[in-house]
């Protein structure tokens, strides 16, 4: 168990803070505001006659206001040390600065009447193991409140909070340009070394460098065997077999149909190239199948090689 958890668990069963006595007795103005905010329209909370007609000695407070009366004062910036709960401060000090209420359950003993002064006593009921949540890593702390009037129990509340290390948002980079947003089909990078290959594709030809009859791909400036910077360019037949393949599911680019087969084809001249298939169901693609090259016009003036089953 972590030191933090051990320290926090030592609070279980002990008062989370000293008992708090309401600064104002149960009163009509606060009930009225609460009912307005909550959309509560039951007349027994505001009208003396209605309350009596319902069998009450006079106006009663909405039961769900149980924990309102003795709440700590609202202060911008949070509670003072005296008003806070040491068990929660332990987590703050350890970097678990986030807090979110996750569950509340109230049990009511009886209705509260105007003029009664409520006292609230919170006990630390439970501290959970470390949990990973969407908000961040943290611990659930459960507080059990007893509410009394002049020592008479009038209700109980279980209140659970998550104390967590916030997942702080990362800074975002600037908005992508309009051009990037339009998602043009990805294009090859053209260099002095490979321009012939892509120009050939645009003319519906598969062109490869050849040195002493050995074809090579991808293009490069030097023949690795002889060290020659000279080469011929030869056109391949386009006939070959599937050497390997994948079927893309993720990630997906606009402009492609998924599931998307991508094939590595070994051409009969001995070089291999990667391309897509035309008119081929993904499940029909298999290693060893004969294929023949064709070309697809992606955009006007931009072609890519592709293969069909032979």
């Amino acid at each position: 168990m972590s030191e933090l958890l051990e320290q926090a668990r030592a609070w279980v069963g002990r008062p989370a803070s000293p008992p708090a006595t309401a600064r104002d007795p149960v009163n009509l103005p606060m009930i009225r505001r609460w009912c307005e905010a909550m959309g509560e329209t039951n007349p027994i909370y505001l009208d003396e006659a209605a309350a009596r007609a319902a069998g009450h000695p006079g106006i009663v407070a909405p039961p769900a206001m149980l924990d309102v009366w003795a709440m700590a004062p609202y202060r911008p910036g949070g509670r003072t040390a005296e008003e806070g709960m040491a068990v929660l401060s332990l987590f703050d000090a350890a970097g678990y600065t986030g807090v979110v209420a996750t569950n509340v359950r109230q049990d009511y003993g009886r209705y509260l009447r105007l003029g009664e002064v409520v006292t609230s006593t919170p006990i630390v009921a439970d501290v959970s193991d470390e949990k990973r949540t969407a908000l961040g890593i943290g611990h659930f702390v459960t507080l059990a409140y007893d509410f009394t009037v002049d020592g008479e129990p009038v209700g109980r509340m279980t209140f659970r909070v998550l104390k967590f290390r916030p997942n702080l948002a990362q800074p975002h980079s600037a908005e992508p340009s309009a051009e990037a947003k339009a998602w043009p089909h990805p294009r090859p990078a053209i260099t002095h070394d490979n321009a012939f290959f892509w120009e050939g594709v645009n003319q519906r030809k598969l062109l490869f460098q050849s040195c002493e009859g050995r074809l090579r791909h991808p293009p490069g400036p030097m023949d690795p065997l002889t060290g020659s910077l000279d080469f011929e360019i030869v056109e391949a037949s386009g006939r070959g077999t599937i050497h390997s393949f994948v079927v893309m599911h993720q990630p997906r680019l606009p402009g492609f149909d998924y599931p998307l087969p991508v094939v590595l084809v070994e051409l009969e001249e001995g070089v291999r190239i990667v391309a897509n298939m035309i008119d081929a169901a993904p499940e029909a693609v298999e290693i060893g199948r004969a294929v023949v090259a064709d070309f697809v016009e992606i955009e006007p003036g931009y072609l890519l090689p592709a293969f069909r089953f032979a």
Binding site: R187, P188, A189, T191, P218, M248, Q250
Partner: peptide, 21 residues
């Protein structure tokens, strides 16, 4: 464009764009 982006150019235009692929 450079030799490294030229390399990816033989795959990315065909949708073969990720390490997994």
């Amino acid at each position: 464009p450079n030799a490294e982006s030229a390399h990816y150019g033989y795959y990315v235009p065909f949708g073969l764009i990720s390490p997994a692929s």
